[in-house]
Simulated scan of single mutants.
Amino acid sequence: MEVADEGSTDLEAVSSEAESSDVAATAPADAKSAPENRATDGPFDSDEANPARPYVDLGGVKILPREGLQLRLEVEEGTQRVVAVGLDFAGSTLQVQAFAAPRSTGLWNDIRAQIRDQITGQGGTLVEQVGVFGPELVAEVPAPGPDGTPVLRLARFVGVDGPRWFLRGVIAGDAMQNEASRAAVEELFRSVVVVRGGSPMPPRDLIPLTIPKSSAAI
């Protein structure tokens, strides 16, 4: 999990910009969570994406290139498996991961609770709110600073349940405090295409990612 913002933060100030998520907190754990306009505005299923657009194909996800976007692949040290896509854009970072999910139920409500437990167990703090993608978490996550001294870094966890997949995003950097950067990163997350494929996969398995044939610098 990457949270790369080096600046000081104010969790309450950020959380005040979105609605309270009392309704989301009481939703069934297996209910799908996605914007009503997901199929038309994204994040997209591979069957919904415009085939004429010049996506960077990473296997399980496709990324739409744009000026100023830098793409990184995050690799698991032991297995050398690509486990996440890191996107640097608008002074911010966006990490995306896509997982297999059941056809009729969602994962985000349950996974959100697990993230909440993990962060609080590490001594972090968080608020749950409703944003443009639905229920989300804004957290102050303990992390080592440049000199090794522990600091709290601000990160936003968003998630969308699609058809047979779940897409998670972790946002950090300027998008946590700057409205223009936030809108740019949200649009970037919406433009992601998930390629679930037709092979059977257990729910919560990471949809395989591959190294693109083109350069990772966009």
Rank of each mutant, 00 (worst) to 15 (best):
D205A: 14
A175R: 03
I207T: 03
I111E: 15
T125K: 13
L107P: 01
Q122V: 10
P142K: 14
I207H: 04
P150L: 02
Q118K: 15
G162R: 10
P146I: 13
E128S: 09
R168G: 06
P150V: 01
R168C: 00
A183R: 10
Q129W: 14
V160R: 04
T149A: 13
V160D: 01
V151G: 03
E179W: 12
A184G: 07
P212L: 03
G169P: 00
L152T: 13
K213T: 12
R112K: 13
I207N: 05
R153E: 01
A100C: 06
R153S: 06
K213L: 12
W165N: 07
L188P: 00
D147C: 06
Q177T: 13
Q114G: 11
W165L: 09
G159R: 05
T125L: 01
V193Y: 00
R190S: 10
D161N: 09
P146D: 08
G169R: 03
R182P: 05
N109H: 13
P208C: 07
A101F: 05
L107M: 07
D110L: 14
A172Q: 08
W165Q: 11
T105W: 03
Q114V: 14
Q129C: 14
A98M: 01
R156A: 04
A101Y: 03
N109E: 11
L206F: 10
A101G: 01
R190K: 10
V185K: 10
T125M: 08
R153I: 04
L209E: 01
G131W: 09
V193Q: 06
L188A: 07
N109D: 03
G106H: 05
S104G: 12
R204D: 05
Q118F: 11
P203G: 09
D174F: 02
P142M: 11
R164F: 12
G159K: 00
P212Q: 07
S181T: 08
S104R: 15
E179T: 10
A143I: 11
I171H: 04
I207L: 05
V96F: 02
L152A: 13
G134C: 05
R190N: 00
F157H: 12
V158Q: 11
G123L: 04
L126P: 02
V170N: 11
F99N: 01
V193A: 00
F99E: 06
I211K: 15
G197I: 08
G148V: 05
R168H: 10
D117L: 08
F189G: 01
P135T: 14
R182E: 12
G134V: 02
F189V: 01
P212S: 06
G134I: 02
G106Y: 08
T125G: 08
G131S: 10
A139L: 01
I111H: 14
R116K: 14
V194P: 00
P202M: 11
V127P: 12
G197M: 05
A113D: 11
T149S: 14
D161Q: 04
S191R: 10
P163W: 15
I111P: 07
V130Y: 10
Q97G: 01
R156C: 02
I207W: 02
A101P: 03
Q122D: 12
R103A: 08
P146W: 09
P200M: 01
L154R: 03
A98V: 04
P146L: 09
L126F: 03
E136G: 09
R156Y: 00
P203H: 13
V138M: 08
F189S: 03
S104K: 15
P146Q: 10
G145A: 04
F99R: 07
V194G: 04
